[in-house]
């Protein structure tokens, strides 16, 4: 077995998943009837005529959430290799991770105090 062999089933699964998803939506496109009607093909806005476009600016809060996610999720990713080797690293590794997490917690407290976690303001 080559070192890459365990990953072959995963490649197969991802391929099948992609093909299946594309095939299902393609079948739906070809099977259904096609009857064009300008009103039917208009954007749905509760039955009223759409006002303006949806391509507008929206709240910057969502952008802040995305930034916070990157910071804290990278921290979570660092935890996995540490967790697997946890017993070998012992108390030394534990304290190292406490120090690392403490810096992240300081960051969390900072964004909390700054109000970046409040969506209603």
């Amino acid at each position: 077995m080559t070192p890459l062999a365990p990953y072959l089933p995963i490649a197969a699964v991802l391929g099948v998943a992609g093909v299946l998803a594309v095939a299902i939506s393609a079948i739906a496109t070809f099977l259904g009837p096609k009857r064009f009607d300008p009103v039917k093909f208009d954007t749905f806005e509760c039955g009223n005529e759409p006002i303006g476009s949806a391509r507008q600016r929206f709240a910057v809060k969502f952008y802040v959430v995305a930034l916070l996610f990157i910071v804290f999720d990278v921290e979570a990713v660092f935890l996995y290799p540490w967790a697997v080797n946890f017993k070998a690293l012992g108390w030394f590794g534990y304290m190292e991770m406490v120090v690392f997490a403490a810096t992240v917690v300081v960051g969390l407290i900072y964004v909390w105090k700054k109000g970046a976690l409040e969506l209603e303001s």
Binding site: L14, A17, A21, S25, A28, F41, T43
Partner: peptide, 30 residues
């Protein structure tokens, strides 16, 4: 669902619109 009209509204971004359900289903399946 299979035999219903596949309605693609005229104002959508076609490629992204088609990719949406594919990208929602394929990861869930995998």
């Amino acid at each position: 669902m299979l035999f219903k009209e596949d309605l693609v509204p005229s104002k959508v971004s076609r490629l992204m619109f088609e990719l949406g359900p594919v990208l929602a289903f394929a990861p869930a399946f995998a």
